[in-house]
């Protein structure tokens, strides 16, 4: 099925925004005392979140993991509130309680970001169960990495979702590394998508750096789920261009490998196509880039100028 031009432009915009957002954080997190905690970025993996979220409607839900910024921006989270939360400020989307790692944005149906590897899977089952229980015309997408596919929760969640035919997409973002372990060092099966067959659900392998392919796979899986066809496991094959976190020296990742994958960057792959097919002009592309830059600059300014929460606010929000 043809992908509407407007969707292509939307995906390019969210990828550009995510990249500018990450690039700025690469520098900001080096400044002592600026951003607390671990900085985990999805540079080079933008096609996954952008492609999947473009295939969703606002009522669809995403449950995401530690590498969440691209997913959340693509789902429509406010960049200012995200950035302020990453800076741990009072104006952040979670009032400084979550920081960069656990960003929760329920107003765009991205209610849970969990950093426990494999934690997203059972929660997504519950969220999709609620959609089925209420007969909603909506689905849940569960993001996780290749590392999480070896947690026990993966097995329990996929089995239950298939058994009850829940409207969920299990979206494995296989970036070839779980911590310092390359894929071959933690998993024997060549394609994680093949595990889908063991649970009685379709498994789909997608070039995770091709945003249009990601979009099409997510759109098809969503349609199947809405028609009562149950869950799908989609494996997006991509690459972790940066370390697990920004303090990771990546000494175990071959330089050539990083370089080869940087050349497969999903952003020019789409923008070149759109420019060469004259969907957009080079000037329009430049305009899109500077708009993304401006959004990120504004977000950083908002975060910088915002106050920290008062210490006593630590006691709030534990119970209803």
């Amino acid at each position: 099925m043809e992908i509407p031009t407007q969707k292509k432009i939307e995906m390019l915009e969210t990828m550009l925004l995510s990249r500018k957002f990450s690039d700025s954080l690469v520098e900001l997190c080096k400044i002592q005392g600026k951003i607390p905690g671990m900085m985990i970025l999805s540079t080079g993996q933008e096609a996954v979140g952008s492609g999947v979220c473009a295939a969703l409607e606002p009522g669809d839900v995403i449950i995401t993991n530690h590498r969440s910024h691209n997913h959340l921006l693509s789902k429509g989270a406010d960049p200012k509130e995200l950035m302020a939360e990453i800076f741990c400020k009072k104006t952040g989307c979670n009032k400084g309680k979550s920081g960069t790692l656990h960003l929760a944005v329920p107003e765009v149906n991205a209610p849970c970001t969990t950093t426990v590897v494999g934690g997203t899977l059972p929660i997504a089952v519950g969220r999709a169960f609620a959609q089925q229980y209420r007969e909603e015309s909506a689905i849940t997408v569960c993001f996780f990495g290749d590392g999480a596919a070896n947690e026990g929760s993966f097995h329990e969640a996929l089995n239950l979702a298939a058994l009850w035919q829940l409207p969920v997409i299990f979206l494995c973002e296989n970036n070839l590394y779980a911590g310092a372990q390359r894929y071959e060092e933690h998993t024997r099966v060549i394609d994680l998508a093949k595990r889908a067959g063991a649970y009685g659900m379709p498994g789909v392998i997608v070039d995770g750096n091709d945003v249009q392919a990601v979009y099409a796979a997510a759109r098809d899986a969503r349609q199947r789920a809405l028609e009562g066809g149950g869950p799908t496991l989609i494996e997006c094959k991509t690459y972790r261009c940066r370390g697990h976190g920004e303090t990771d020296p990546q000494h175990y990742q071959p330089r050539d490998e990083i370089k080869q994958w940087q050349e497969k960057c999903p952003i020019p792959r789409l923008s070149d196509e759109l420019v060469s097919s004259r969907v957009i002009s080079s000037e329009e592309l430049k305009g899109m880039e500077s708009r993304a830059e401006k959004i990120v600059e504004d977000a950083i300014r908002f975060a910088e100028e915002s106050p920290y929460p008062e210490p006593h606010e630590a006691l709030e929000d534990v119970y209803v």
Partner: peptide, 8 residues
């Protein structure tokens, strides 16, 4: 709930 800043 705490991580959501009381939103959820």
């Amino acid at each position: 709930r705490y991580l959501s800043g009381g939103k959820s």
